[in-house]
Amino acid sequence: MSLIEFRDVSEVYIKGAPPAVDKLSFDIDNGEFVFITGDSGSGKSTIIKLLLRELIPTSGKISVAGMDLGTMKHRKIPMYRRKVGVVFQEFRLLEDRDIYANVAFAMRVTEAKPKIIKKKVPAALSLVGLAQKYKSYPNELSGGEQQRVAIARALINEPALLLCDEPTGNLDPSNSWEIMHLLEEANERGTTVVVVTHNQEIVNEMHKRVITLNKGVIVSDVQGGEYR
């Protein structure tokens, strides 16, 4: 069953300019692991922004778990986003808090009970191999470690969908692989993972579904595909 449905989705940032994505149509099923690749300006990040409901499609329809993102009311957005985890290239951690507080923050936002927060945060940090460093601040960690904290934060609310925008963009190859393994593990536990990347080596070696974009249009969509 499809978790994500794009139907003729276009996004025009400036009236008169060419669309960032042009009449995109594709489905992503529950439990899939999908790479979205393409050159800069191909529309990869626009897809992430549309899925985060940061943008509303200029035309077409986007459904996630049966919810129409185009007609979603402003007050419903927070509840939707709690079902979607997100990981960014720049980690986007809160520099003034230790990593325990950073991960707990995602649960506080959902108004989880303190007892549950105390139980789940150490478990999430263990999952990404940072249980011992829970008192460290982001600037005391390496890039790879910071991205692992970001993954723990994204996964702590057990989202159905994990969106990753260039998650290895700021990392060396060894750290990049660590991150990809964590994402693969999350996928094996049932989370649908969508990774926007232009890391050719990773895409080619992981043999997942690859959607390739060029100038806002899908040029290929191949199961077990390669970077083009």
Binding site: P78, R81, R82, V86, R92, L94, F105, V109, R153, A154
Partner: peptide
């Protein structure tokens, strides 16, 4: 940045 992160992870207004 903090507000943006809050909103991304589903904080209500």
């Amino acid at each position: 940045e903090e507000i943006a992160i809050m909103k991304y992870i589903g904080a209500k207004d």
